[in-house]
């Protein structure tokens, strides 16, 4: 199955550059969920994140042959997904903004989990968009600070300060304080 292709992203990119179509399928299956999450985060109301996800991969495909991978692939996929979603918001003439976590359909709860916390969602949603964006990229997308800086095309120092301020705000917010109780 292409999704279980043992090759690294760099090897798949090289294979795709050499004209191997199955390498694209492997990249797609490997990163589809990740791209979908980002698309969902920025998708304007009425836009299907699935459509945005497909468009992101089409955009990626158009970069071949000749695409050079010099960082993690997600660092390239993130701005494409973000830009695609925000462009759709502009096309619909609706405000381009981060989708709130509050009331997010499908938030996971299960045995052993403390359940999706509406309080935490509300606290995160009150963060300024720039801080919320960086926090989610770091915590949910598991991007490094350097990758976030690259993906958002902002200085590393800005990423650090936004994350720091986001955490500071959450720590002092009663709705999120419990996540910091045994921390530092």
């Amino acid at each position: 199955m292409p999704g279980q292709d043992p090759r690294t992203d760099a090897e798949l990119v090289a294979a795709l550059n050499a004209g191997e179509p199955s390498a694209f399928e492997a990249l797609y299956l490997r990163h589809r969920d990740w791209v979908f999450r980002v698309a969902r985060r920025y998708a304007p109301p009425g836009e299907d994140p699935a459509d945005i996800t497909h468009e992101v991969f089409l955009t990626l495909l158009r970069k071949f042959p000749g695409f050079r991978l010099t960082a993690r692939l997600t660092t390239y996929l993130f701005p494409i997904a973000r830009h695609t979603a925000l462009a759709r918001a502009r096309a619909r003439q609706v405000e381009a903004r981060l989708t709130p976590l509050t009331g997010r359909a499908g938030a996971v709860s299960g045995p052993g989990m403390d359940g999706p916390s509406p309080e935490l969602a509300a606290a995160v949603d009150t963060l300024p968009p720039g801080q919320r964006e960086v926090l989610l990229m770091r915590a949910v997308d598991e991007m490094t600070l350097e990758e976030i800086a690259l993906a958002l095309a902002i200085p590393l120092g800005t990423v650090k300060s936004r994350l720091h301020l986001a955490l500071q705000t959450l720590r002092s917010d009663a709705r999120a304080r419990r996540y910091f109780e045994n921390f530092g």
């Binding site: 589809r32 499908g106 999706p116 916390s117 995160v124 989610l136 949910v140």
Partner: peptide, 16 residues
């Protein structure tokens, strides 16, 4: 980022 915060945020983000 506090250990408990990451999974909580991921759960809030929801499954695909």
């Amino acid at each position: 980022i506090p250990d408990g915060l990451k999974p909580a945020l991921r759960r809030l983000d929801g499954p695909v």
